[in-house]
Computed example of a mutant assay.
Amino acid sequence: MAGLATHRTWVLRRAGRLVGSVRARLTSRGGWDIGRLMVAPDLQGQGLGRLLLEHAEAAAPPDATTYLLFTGARSAANQRMYKKAGYRLRPDLKAPPGAVVLTKARPRVGR
Score class of each variant (00 low, 15 high):
residue 81 M to V: 07
residue 19 V to G: 07
residue 95 A to L: 03
residue 90 R to A: 05
residue 19 V to H: 05
residue 29 R to C: 13
residue 27 T to A: 11
residue 71 T to V: 04
residue 27 T to S: 15
residue 95 A to E: 03
residue 65 T to Y: 08
residue 78 N to I: 00
residue 34 I to W: 00
residue 97 P to L: 01
residue 51 L to K: 09
residue 26 L to K: 03
residue 57 E to P: 09
residue 49 G to R: 08
residue 63 D to T: 15
residue 33 D to G: 02
residue 21 S to R: 09
residue 60 A to H: 13
residue 54 E to P: 05
residue 76 A to V: 15
residue 86 G to I: 09
residue 47 G to I: 05
residue 29 R to W: 12
residue 17 R to A: 14
residue 20 G to V: 04
residue 40 A to Y: 00
residue 87 Y to K: 00
residue 40 A to R: 11
residue 83 K to C: 04
residue 23 R to C: 07
residue 71 T to Q: 04
residue 94 K to F: 03
residue 30 G to Q: 09
residue 16 G to Q: 01
residue 14 R to W: 05
residue 88 R to V: 14
residue 17 R to H: 08
residue 87 Y to L: 00
residue 47 G to M: 09
residue 15 A to D: 15
residue 43 L to D: 03
residue 90 R to C: 11
residue 93 L to M: 13
residue 61 P to L: 12
residue 68 L to D: 00
residue 21 S to A: 12
residue 93 L to T: 08
residue 12 L to G: 04
residue 8 R to D: 14
residue 78 N to H: 05
residue 27 T to H: 05
residue 94 K to G: 01
residue 11 V to K: 02
residue 73 A to Y: 01
residue 39 V to L: 02
residue 99 A to L: 10
residue 100 V to G: 06
residue 84 K to E: 07
residue 95 A to Y: 01
residue 66 T to P: 06
residue 40 A to H: 09
residue 62 P to D: 14
residue 75 S to W: 05
residue 25 R to A: 12
residue 81 M to A: 12
residue 73 A to T: 09
residue 84 K to H: 13
residue 8 R to A: 14
residue 27 T to Y: 03
residue 75 S to P: 00
residue 87 Y to W: 01
residue 15 A to L: 08
residue 27 T to F: 05
residue 17 R to P: 00
residue 77 A to M: 03
residue 3 G to C: 14
residue 76 A to S: 14
residue 58 A to L: 09
residue 81 M to T: 13
residue 5 A to Q: 13
residue 27 T to N: 08
residue 94 K to T: 11
residue 6 T to Q: 12
residue 49 G to V: 10
residue 11 V to C: 12
residue 84 K to G: 06
residue 72 G to W: 08
residue 16 G to Y: 01
residue 63 D to C: 12
residue 61 P to G: 13
residue 36 R to L: 01
residue 12 L to P: 02
residue 3 G to F: 13
residue 88 R to Q: 13
residue 21 S to H: 11
residue 56 A to S: 13
residue 28 S to N: 07
residue 60 A to L: 08
residue 83 K to M: 08
residue 64 A to I: 13
residue 85 A to T: 01
residue 15 A to R: 15
residue 85 A to P: 02
residue 56 A to T: 10
residue 22 V to D: 00
residue 61 P to S: 10
residue 21 S to W: 03
residue 97 P to I: 04
residue 62 P to Y: 07
residue 32 W to E: 11
residue 40 A to K: 04
